[in-house]
Amino acid sequence: MGIKKEKKENVSRRDFFLKSGAIAGGVVFVSLLDPLKAVFAVKEPKDKRKKWYGIGIDIEKCIGCASCARACKKENDVPKEPFFFRNWVEQYTITNEGDIKVISPNGGIDGYKQTVPEANIYKTFFVPKMCNHCAKSPCTQVCPVGASFESEEGLALVDQSYCIGCGYCVQACPYGCRYIHPDKGVVDKCTLCYHRLKKGLDPACMMVCPTGARMYGDLHDKDSKLSKFIKDNNCVVLKPQLNTGAKLYYNALSQEVH
């Protein structure tokens, strides 16, 4: 009886190690499977002569006319309804009590109505938003098929003939820049007017801005307008804590802007 019991204990102990080993092996297996090439969607070209696009927006110059939003919709055939935007303009109003009100009626295209009486306004300003063309973009990281990618010049683009419309990238973008096109069923977003850049033209939104608040350029060229803008001003990006490598630099961005 004693020997049989011992044998059974040995068997069950062996089983236990087998199972623990299986589970431990499974965990190691899982961790190895996890993508190690996680963050960098595309390596910034080492050759500094190659273009590396960035964008600059000067909040102090923005008058909230939304010409940029209007022009973008016309240039890129964005659906006219107020639910789909490649770029838009927000108005922030901070009252004397510290309340923060943000509005963006039809992305700014319909103009702004200020409901807070002027005496009660502590601070108010406009913030244009668009795709940040992040260097370490979370949107390209999560695309399951490779339809969202980063071009070699640092632009986050979408291959609409290959996109399956899963919407994972829409969820992953921290800035709300992407949307599912209602007619095409695939993802659409700002391309920095790649089709215009290739023809030697400026992006539509940059061109129509009446005050020159928007600019873009080559971050590798230290003499470009954009590089000088970043150098001469205190420029920050949105949500820096997420480490997206955003290349849209704002001047005079207030902390309330998310």
Binding site: A71, E75, N76, D159, Q160, H195, R196, K198, L201, M207
Partner: peptide, 12 residues
């Protein structure tokens, strides 16, 4: 895809 994206007509 790069060529397909750049084929879009420039309106402005």
């Amino acid at each position: 895809a790069l060529d397909e994206i750049s084929n879009h007509e420039a309106k402005y």
